[in-house]
């Protein structure tokens, strides 16, 4: 596994270990402290593109979460 893929795995594992479901970008970066913020952004965006993370936004701020099954459907039904 490349160091990039390994860092992405660490991000996903860190997300899974957390009690809260939504996380700020700054907090996720704690999972890969040796990587600077700009590089971490690229990794996190790749994870979003791959469907392994997803955005949540209030309109003014943005957070990241692990995707679940039927997320949009659940949100629309008011289940989250």
């Amino acid at each position: 596994m490349s160091s990039k893929e390994e860092a992405k795995e660490r991000i996903i594992n860190w997300m899974k270990e957390q009690k809260k479901s939504k996380h700020y970008f700054n907090d996720i970066c704690k999972a890969v402290p040796e990587i600077n913020m700009r590089e971490a952004k690229k990794l996190i965006n790749e994870l979003v593109s791959e469907g392994r993370l997803r955005y949540w936004t209030s309109g003014s701020t943005t957070m990241y979460m692990l995707p679940g099954v039927d997320d949009v459907e659940k949100e629309e039904k008011g289940m989250v």
Binding site: R54, Y55, W56, T57, S58, T62, M65, V72, E75, E76
Partner: peptide, 24 residues
């Protein structure tokens, strides 16, 4: 109105803001 959501368009993290009414 509820606060925010996950909806958006593919590849973008902005430009769309989920809005849901709490008395559907």
């Amino acid at each position: 109105w509820k606060h925010g959501g996950i909806v958006g368009v593919f590849g973008y993290g902005g430009g769309v803001i989920g809005r849901y009414c709490d008395r559907p």
